[in-house]
């Protein structure tokens, strides 16, 4: 199935749940609306001709330039991107889904943006979402056990945010 035909098929099935696609990219990707994510993922996993049974990776990319001079030239609005890499054993094919989120919920700094959890679709997502929450600060609604995984439980902030500042001190250990 060609990329274009595949996107059309998804659009027909989910309407505005599919926001767009970038088929010229090195790894072509499809943008999914956050509210349709679980439905789209379940469909991709269960359709007999697709069977994307494996979730390889979830990555969050923070698009934010702290330097105002550089920020004027970057060509994008500040946002967060979630990237899902899927794999189908049956078709030996990979697929990339993206979900665009605001950096903060309601633009209030400190309020984590929310996205539905796909831990019920692929169990891999359980730990990966915990990692994304820990390091990039995204709240996965419906996750069975969303807590920090790599950083200590009392860590403040999310290190992979571009505006993250290293703590000066942590339990008597000097930082910076």
């Amino acid at each position: 199935m060609s990329g274009q035909a595949f996107v059309e098929r998804l659009k027909q099935r989910f309407g505005s749940g599919i926001r767009g696609a970038q088929l010229e990219a090195l790894d072509p990707w499809i943008e999914v609306a956050p509210e349709a994510l679980v439905e789209v993922c379940t469909y991709l996993r269960d359709q007999p001709d697709l069977r994307f049974t494996m979730l390889n990776c979830i990555t969050a990319v923070d698009y934010f330039e702290p330097d105002p001079k550089k920020a004027a030239k970057v060509g994008w609005e500040p946002h967060l991107e979630l990237v899902y890499h899927l794999w189908s054993f049956q078709n030996k094919a990979s697929l990339v889904l993206k979900v665009m989120l605001p950096r903060w919920k309601g633009d209030v700094p400190g309020e984590l943006p929310e996205v539905p959890s796909v831990a019920g679709v692929w169990s891999t997502a359980n730990w990966h979402e915990r990692e994304v929450y820990d390091l990039s600060g995204v709240w996965f609604v419906g996750h069975p056990d969303l807590r920090r995984i790599l950083c200590p439980e009392d860590w403040v902030g999310h290190p992979l945010r571009k505006d993250y500042e290293m703590p000066l001190e942590y339990h008597g250990i000097r930082g910076r």
């Binding site: 990776c57 990555t59 990319v61 923070d62 890499h85 169990s123 891999t124 730990w127 990692e131």
Partner: peptide, 15 residues
């Protein structure tokens, strides 16, 4: 802009 490492043992351990 972003460098990400997807670890194999991370997933293997989660099971």
């Amino acid at each position: 802009w972003r460098a990400r490492a997807r670890s194999s043992c991370f997933c293997n351990l989660s099971v």
